[in-house]
Amino acid sequence: MNEETSDSSLEIDSHPDGPIEHAKILLVEDDPALRLVLKNVLEMNDYTILEADSKASAEIVLKEDPNIAALVLDLGLPPSPHTTTEGLAVIKMAVAQLHRAKIVVLTGQDEESSALAAIKEGAFDFLSKPSRSSEILNAVQRAVLFYRKERTLEDEQGLTRLQINAKVSDGLKAVREEAEEKLVRHVLKDTQFNVYQSAARLGLKRESIYYFLKKFGIKRDDG
C-alpha cells in the first residue's frame, strides 16, 4: 500500500522515529471510504499513515517498515469481513513476528467477545465502532507513547517487554519456557539472527543458543 508523509512542519526531535506527532501508524481497514476518512483524521493530527486492507498486505507493510508505532486494526477483514478471524490473525501474526507496534482495535464486531479475544491475543486497546475521533486519537496517542517508552527502556536500560499469557494451572515450567522462547526470538531478531551477538547479549554460550534454536524450532525466516 502507499505511504504518504504528513505535511506538518513540526520540528523532528533526536529520536530515530521522530516526535510522537510524526509516528508511523498502520491503518488496517478493508472499507476504502472509512480508511480514507480515518487516514485524514490521523494525518490532520500529524501522524504518518500507512495503509493495508487485509492480513496479507498488513504483513507486507509491517515487514517493510519495522518502525511502525501502532496499528489501528479492524477485526473484520476479507475474506471473512463479518467475523473476527482475520483481524485476530493479524494480531497473532504481529505478536509472533515480535513487532513492537501497539495494536489498537477499532471494530464493529460483537464488543464483549471480540474485546476479550483481541486482548488475549495481545491487543493494546479496544474501541468499538462507532467511536469519536477524539477517542481514536487518544488511543493512538497512548499506543505511540507506550511504543516510544518501551523503545527508550530497551535502548537505555536493555529492558525488553515480553507478553505472556500464563495459565496458573500450567505451573512455572510452561511460563518459563514461553518466556525463554520469546526472549531468544526477540534477541535473534534484533541481531539479524547473529548467534554470536545474541549469545553475548543474553550472557550465554553459543552452544546454548543453538540448543534453544533446536528446542523451539526457531528458523531465520520466522520473523
Binding site: D31, A33, V37, G76, K129, P130, R132, S133
Partner: peptide, 17 residues
C-alpha cells in the same frame, strides 16, 4: 450491523472533521 456500524462510523468522523 457490521455494514451499518461502518457507515455510522464514517458519517460521524466526517461530521467531526
Amino acid at each position: 450491523q457490521h455494514d451499518m456500524k461502518n457507515i455510522v462510523q464514517l458519517i460521524s468522523l466526517v461530521s467531526e472533521q
